[in-house]
Structure formats: structure tokens, C-alpha cells
Design a binder for these strands. Structure first.
Length: 573
DNA sequence: GCCGTTTTCGGCCCGACTGTTTTCAGTCG
């Protein structure tokens, strides 16, 4: 069974982590991580590419050596060098390294001196006061490590974007009250709209830094002040979310925003371009020797580097630099392009509002259509409707549609895909619907081959339109079920089916990388909220964010179209 | 280990903060 790109990327990342602990050349370590990122961003499996005789060294960050290693992994399922290194260094050390304050050097020092290779070992050693005795460590470091080790079990490592927004809003309001404050903005992965964020990076411009810092560390929701300096401070909120605050002068705003937005890989790539032009880029500006040539706005910085402006969502070093050099950046979709929602629930099953209330809320959002897509019988936990129930429900939607003003209600269903790949409603009902949103709700534990077969069989049904939440992931709770996404997308293309970007903050499924894969394959997507209440129709923007991260343009999305155009697209010949 | 209108060898982004140092390594973003 050929390995997926992500599995090969995982192997490279693991190998990089172990190499790093061995004090290997840092650029060699980086080379493996760069290659891993390239692999994760590909829309085609390297196994298939090699079968077709492609030369992988044409991909960025992959040279002769790594192409050979990829071939070895595909042939044997292993990277011999990793297996060998894993014998002298326990692979578990890579997990310890994820702890704040622990990097490769210290992890290795702890392992060599005290045989620490697990969180429990670390806790024991810290409590016994053995860490402070090591050279390079001290009392404070030991205390911090103990706290971090204890905290790890207590808090989630990353927060959903929507949750981070809720914590950020009051903090920003609080900071705006400082005298001399000019701009306040959240940069980092939050600004790049990643599905989850590990911390908040707040950038502030002000005439003086000290008053900002003083107020920042006195915010009432703070659990702990991690560090405090004149231009940079870090705190942890009571929720466990870490917040960094950075103060820069107004003339550096653009350069600082660029630097603080990242990603790290994007920053390295842009700084490398600067170096090649004989310039230096840091958070204070773009410099030619000691003269600042750009920095007030991000646009200035990009322009001075010979690049078109790159939207934050694209800044992952996944090809956006080259696209910007050639003027081939995508025209990303925006929330205002969305003309309707294609997945919503009502009181008929597990929603909180009536059809009429949902229609009114959608109309207020300026939509011209809303699909009412309640659950089918097999999803008992959501009080799914059987064929008889659905017949009555369809009449209710039709009746509501006649009364609704300014919005069209689409007769739809979230049809459960049964284990044998059949659909959970008879064709006699399915054919009465305007569209179907089909999804897996049970049996997540099939093999990738079985799950893929199951879904493709479902797509064979001529009434199958959109595959909803295609991997079933729930952030922090449930891993995506294994499925061959490339095959699934190919099957959808061949049959005139589509995939959904589910906009629920805990789902965001398809992921950004899979959205990019669909875009590259020419497969159109629905962006839909799966709203269970009138309010949560507002989740649409999170779905749009992930689509943007996947380079998706308005034409790539079903529900940027009028109903008549959409209807024509949904029709399967 | 990758990469090339400076180079097939010699580079590889840049700065802030902390703690343990006595001039700086480690970590982080």
C-alpha cells in the first residue's frame, strides 16, 4: 500500500526532531522540515507522481537525496536512517520537546544526565529537585518545567479560532484605552486564519512602550506573566491561551506586521529574497545598509521586494512567493461573494429554530437561498427523519418557501451514508429534493480503502450531490477518519459530485490543505455552515477563511452562484 | 540536505527575552 504524502512528511519531521537533538547541522534539519511541508502541500501523491515518471527534485526543497529517501519509504514503508537513529535516541523525546521551554538541547541534556524520556520522568525529577543540579539548568528553569509539565494535562494545546476570537475581543478593547496608543492588531496564525491557534500575537504601535506593557500585564484575565520587556511581553490567560504583545514605532508597523504574521517559513523565504537583493528585512523595516527603504505598510515591504501583496491566509511558503513574483496570485474568495448556505438544520431534527426562523435569519444575511438539510433516520441521536417523516418535512419546506420573502428555501437533506455505501433515504424521496448533502456519521474505524470505497459507492447514487464534512474531524476531540482524499476527489469529479468545506469552528472540514487539493484538481466546493441555529449561520466566515487558505477563488465555490446557475451544476446527467 | 543573475561550494533569516552566565546559550516566534 503506497504511503500518503502526509505519512512521509511525518517521517521526515520525526527524523528532523531526532537529528536536532543529536546536534546535527541546523540547515540539514531544516531541509527535512522544508521537504515535509512541501509534501503536505502537494495535491497529488508522490507515489502516483513517481509512477508517472515525474522528477520530484523539481519540487521546492526536494533534491536528489530526499527523492531517493522518498522512494525508499514508498518501497519499504520505512526510512532506515530513522529506524537506526530511533535506537540510540528514544523517539518519545520528540514529544517532550513540544513542552514550552524545552528545546532539543535541553531535552537531550535531561535524557543523558537523568534518563528522562517521558512527562512523568520529568515531573518526578523536577519534584525531587534533581534538574536544578545540572549545568545550564537552575532553580527557575526547574520550576518552570514543573509547571509546564503539570499544565500540559490541564489545558488544550491549541484553541479553535472561534474561541481565540472570543478571548481576544475584550483584551483588545482593554488595550485600546492606553494613552498614546495608535494601532492594535492581532497578527500570527490568528491573522493567517489557521483553524486552530496556539497563541495570540498582538502588535501595537505607540509613542511609548512602557505604558502599554504596564497595562497589558495588569489585565484581569491573566493567569501568569511569562516574560516582560520594553518592547515585548508574554502572558498566559486563565484559559491557558498564551498572548504575546509587541510594541513598535509607527514607521515600522508594516514590517512588524509582516514579521509577526508569519508564517515562520514565509518569513524565512521573504528575508532570503531581501538578502539576495542586498537588503535586510527585520521587524523594524527593510534596510539597505542602515537606511530604511520600506516598513510603514506591508504593501511597501512586498513592493520593495518585487512581490505583489500576499494575503495573510496564503503566507505558508506553499508557493505564494513564486506566484507573487509572477503576478499569479489567486483572487481569493470573500464572505461577500457567498450567495447562500447549503447546509442547515431546523427543529425538525436537532436544530434549535424553525424553518421560518432560519429563513428570516438567512435573508437578513443577504442570502438569496438557504438549503434546509435535516438528518435522516439512521442518525438517531439527532432524531433523524424516516421516509414518511421526510415526505411531511418536504411539504413544510415548500409551504414555508411560498411564504418566505426575498429568499428561496431549498429542499435538502443531510443523508447518512450507510456502511455499505447506500443512502439512508429511498430514491422516491431523494428525487423530490433540490440537493443532497451526504455524510458519514458512523463506522469511522474502517480502513482507508474501505472508507474510500464506501463513500465512492454512495456517490454512485445519482442523487448524491455534496459530501459533507468529508473527514469527520472534530478539533481536539476526534481525528479525521482515514480516507484516500485524492481518489475521493477524482471520483467526485467523474460523477459530478462536490465536497463541502464545513464551517463549524470545530470541524473546518475539508481542511485548508485539502481545499487546495480540490482547487488544483478543478473540483468545486460548497462552503456551508451546518448551522443548528439561526445565529450559527454566521459561522460562514470561518469556512471562507479556510477556503482562502486553500487558494480558493469565487468561481471554485458552488454557493457564489445564483440558484439557477447552481441548479444546473447540481444536475447529474 | 538544498540551492545557484554573486556561487556546483559555501552559504543557508533575524531579533527579543530569560536564566545562568562572567560573555552567552537556549528557546521562541
Amino acid at each position: 500500500m503506497p504511503k500518503q504524502n502526509t505519512e512521509i512528511a511525518d517521517i521526515f519531521d520525526r527524523y528532523a526532531a531526532l537529528l536536532e537533538m543529536q546536534d546535527a547541522n541546523v540547515f540539514r534539519v531544516r531541509a527535512y522540515r522544508d521537504a515535509a511541508r512541501t509534501l503536505r502541500g502537494l495535491s497529488k501523491s508522490v507515489a502516483a507522481m513517481l509512477d508517472e515518471g515525474a522528477d520530484l527534485t523539481e519540487l521546492s526543497h526536494i533534491g536528489d537525496e530526499l527523492q531517493k529517501k522518498i522512494q525508499t519509504i514508498l518501497e519499504t514503508g520505512h526510512l532506515p536512517q530513522l529506524d537506526k537513529l530511533g535506537k540510540s535516541i528514544p523517539p518519545e523525546l520528540a514529544d517532550l520537546e513540544a513542552l514550552p521551554g524545552l528545546g532539543p538541547k535541553r531535552v537531550m541534556a535531561l535524557y543523558q544526565a537523568l534518563k528522562i524520556d517521558s512527562l512523568q520522568d520529568l515531573l518526578d525529577a523536577a519534584q525531587a529537585g534533581r534538574i536544578r543540579e545540572l549545568s545550564g539548568f537552575g532553580e527557575k528553569t526547574e520550576k518552570k518545567l514543573l509547571e509546564e509539565a503539570q499544565r500540559r494535562a490541564q489545558f488544550l494545546k491549541r484553541f479553535e479560532l472561534a474561541a481565540a476570537e472570543q478571548m481576544a475581543a475584550p483584551l483588545l478593547d482593554y488595550l485600546r484605552d492606553v494613552k498614546g496608543m495608535k494601532k492594535v492588531i492581532i497578527a500570527g496564525s490568528y491573522r493567517r486564519r489557521r483553524a486552530t491557534v496556539g497563541d495570540l500575537d498582538i502588535l501595537v504601535t505607540a509613542t511609548k512602550g512602557a505604558p502599554v506593557m504596564d497595562r497589558f500585564v495588569r489585565y484581569e484575565d491573566i493567569g501568569e506573566v511569562v516574560s516582560q520587556g520594553g518592547t515585548r511581553s508574554t502572558v498566559r490567560l486563565q484559559s491557558g491561551l498564551q498572548v504575546d504583545l509587541r510594541v513598535v514605532p509607527e514607521v515600522s508597523y508594516g514590517a512588524a506586521l509582516h514579521y509577526f504574521t508569519g508564517s515562520k517559513a514565509h518569513n524565512i523565504a521573504t528575508r532570503t529574497i531581501a538578502v539576495k537583493k542586498g537588503l535586510k528585512l527585520n521587524e523594524y523595516g527593510l534596510y539597505k545598509s542602515n537606511e530604511r527603504v520600506a516598513g510603514r505598510t506591508e504593501q511597501d515591504v512586498y513592493a520593495a521586494l518585487g512581490l505583489a501583496y500576499i494575503e495573510p491566509e496564503l503566507r505558508e511558503d506553499r508557493g505564494e512567493i513564486e506566484a507573487a513574483q509572477r503576478g499569479r496570485l489567486p483572487g481569493l474568495i470573500e464572505l461577500k461573494d457567498i450567495r447562500g448556505d447549503l447546509h442547515a438544520h431546523t427543529k425538525a431534527t436537532d436544530g434549535q429554530n424553525t424553518i421560518e426562523e432560519m429563513a428570516e435569519a438567512a435573508s437578513k444575511r443577504g442570502y438569496s437561498y438557504l438549503a434546509i438539510s435535516d438528518h435522516t433516520q439512521h442518525v438517531t441521536i439527532a432524531q433523524g427523519l424516516d421516509a414518511k417523516g421526510f415526505a411531511a418535512h418536504i411539504e413544510a419546506i415548500e409551504s414555508a418557501n411560498e411564504k418566505a420573502e426575498g429568499i428561496r428555501l431549498l429542499k435538502a437533506a443531510e443523508v447518512d451514508i450507510l456502511e455499505d455505501g447506500s443512502l439512508d433515504l429511498p430514491d422516491s424521496i431523494l428525487k423530490q429534493l433540490d440537493l443532497t448533502v451526504c455524510a458519514v456519521h458512523y463506522q469511522f474505524d474502517l480502513t482507508s480503502a474501505q472508507q474510500t470505497e464506501r463513500i465512492i459507492r454512495a456517490m454512485d447514487n445519482p442523487y448524491f450531490n455534496i459530501l459533507a464534512h468529508p473527514t469527520g474531524r472534530l478539533m481536539g476531540k476526534r481525528e479525521p477518519y482515514p480516507v484516500d482524499m485524492e481518489r475521493l476527489m477524482k471520483a467526485a469529479l467523474e460523477r459530478g459530485c462536490f465536497l463541502e468545506i464545513n464551517a463549524q469552528p470545530a470541524r473546518l472540514d475539508l481542511s485548508d490543505e485539502h481545499a487546495r487539493m480540490a482547487k488544483d484538481m478543478g473540483l468545486k466546493l460548497a462552503i456551508a455552515t451546518d448551522a443548528h441555529s439561526a445565529d450559527t449561520l454566521g459561522y460562514m466566515r470561518f469556512g471562507v477563511d479556510q477556503a482562502r487558505r486553500g487558494w480558493v477563488e469565487p468561481a471554485d465555490v458552488l454557493n457564489t452562484r445564483s440558484w439557477s446557475d447552481l441548479k444546473a451544476l447540481l444536475k447529474r446527467s
